[in-house]
Design a protein around this nucleic acid. Sequence first.
DNA 1: TCCATTCTCTGACCATAGTCAGAGAATCGT
DNA 2: ACGATTCTCTGACTATGGTCAGAGAATGGA
Lengths: 297, 297
Amino acid sequence: MEAEQIEAVRRFNRVITQRIGALEDAYLSREHSLGLSRLLWEIGSEGAEVRVLRSRLSLDSGYVSRQLRRLESEGLVTTDPDENDGRVRTVRLTDAGASERALLDRSSDELAASMLEPLTASQRDRLVAAMAEVEKLVIASLVRIEITDPRDPDARFCLRSYFAELGRRFDGGFDPAQSIPAGDQEMSLPDGLLLVATVQGSPVGCGALKLHPDTGIAEVKRMWVSSGVRGLGLGRRLLECLAKEASTRGTSTLRLETNQTLTEARRLYETAGFVEVEAFNDEPYAHHWFQRDLKPV
Amino acid sequence: MEAEQIEAVRRFNRVITQRIGALEDAYLSREHSLGLSRLLWEIGSEGAEVRVLRSRLSLDSGYVSRQLRRLESEGLVTTDPDENDGRVRTVRLTDAGASERALLDRSSDELAASMLEPLTASQRDRLVAAMAEVEKLVIASLVRIEITDPRDPDARFCLRSYFAELGRRFDGGFDPAQSIPAGDQEMSLPDGLLLVATVQGSPVGCGALKLHPDTGIAEVKRMWVSSGVRGLGLGRRLLECLAKEASTRGTSTLRLETNQTLTEARRLYETAGFVEVEAFNDEPYAHHWFQRDLKPV
DNA sequence: TCCATTCTCTGACCATAGTCAGAGAATCGT
DNA sequence: ACGATTCTCTGACTATGGTCAGAGAATGGA
């Protein structure tokens, strides 16, 4: 990494935190403290359970409790016990609370507008485009990839999303019963593994391996990337991560099959060193079979 | 301004403040509080006067004093009275303080590096480029233009910079004595005015008017934009601002002359509605004379 | 049934980051 | 020379944003 780039990032951080900080001071410090406003915001129009608020903002339970009492005494929220679980309490905004929250929303809009306002139309377009690029790449830098139990909720979410996408994209839909299966056992060590990619706790992609240590072959399955984070090279990162995991577990050849409608996946495999080979199984949904040799570690 | 753009800016602000905030928590919260670290940083390797620190960080004098006592008691700084002015005290870092500051510096580097580290080389380049663009445009949105007394230090700085630049760029240099002068009086109301553009307190550009109410003509003089903020349309903003000020003061025609080496200025004048005319004065350094009619207010 | 756990709440603390009033010394302006 | 101003400092006070221990009610699991 070059010193110049680091200097550029530092300069950016300095300018941006100053600017946004100054604006937040000016706009958001209405009658409530920052903490109260944050809580009010996080409750949302639907209401929220106290324990959810606590974990989302990662705050102490006593602290949240006191803040809620204060909001209550100002008539901005009401808290009622949960119907199913008497320990849990649910906070809801009153009308006054909702309008207070709307005010915060408007302030945020004004804050954003004040960054655009002094600029010409073309400068605004450039700023918005550059911000989108920064945002995207910063999110990319937040991706964490970890081996995850297939029964984990995040893993379940990814697998469900994967099947849903195949259903949407395959000509004639997708029926898991027709396809070669990959059960939880096959995606758990030592038979295989599942990688889940997350951004700040939310699952955004996955990829699995079925290991066959006796033959030195491993199959790549369940490659999926959420539409929100496409174009960030996450597919490639997952694939390389799978290759590394396979390699350290005695795999010399990686195999996978794919459907003709998944063109971007095919391009990914080709540019990642896979070569198309004869069909090595009878997966009914596959049109292309790929293979890649791994360098031993 | 479009709602979409505002939404994009808000999303950017959210993502970036979260990201930078989280990183700062992780990296910068060493043994000193944020306030002490900020002060330590601001003192710099050269040392600084207490009053300068106070105004730069816009902090209460009592507060700064107490913070300094604390840094002193930890052996990180020394404060000595100024040689010339016994009221002023100058703070300097001790060796321990300097190494503490170097540590902060390194943390900032690591923080920046951690944003780049997970990315591929091409993504890094894109991120740095987009950050530079955002930074530039955000700075552009921070520019304030105000009528300023020519004897004000900021004004003096701009005028000095203006002459220095002419000296560098004109073939054969520039000698103010040879040129048609514009004294402080001529750039002060009611005879004229000087606009100074600042970004967060630092002067970055200027432009002056010499008014001639009897003829309805005003002359534009001393147009200068700091090299650090070029390409942001600041010249145009200054020029439009001058035109507006002239217009409200009974000017119907704006005039200016310029040197052939200032090509970007000439392009600015042409695209801002000025047309080249015969020489209307005998300014020895001028090669082109321009004029523009103003719509009455 | 009963013990462990979960969830919320209260009370007692604490550090940080200030603000405000005023005092004392040095300097400036006239 | 002297009154106004500038600069720094001390003391008293405050709000914010927490942490920690423990109590009491509800629930879950064996």
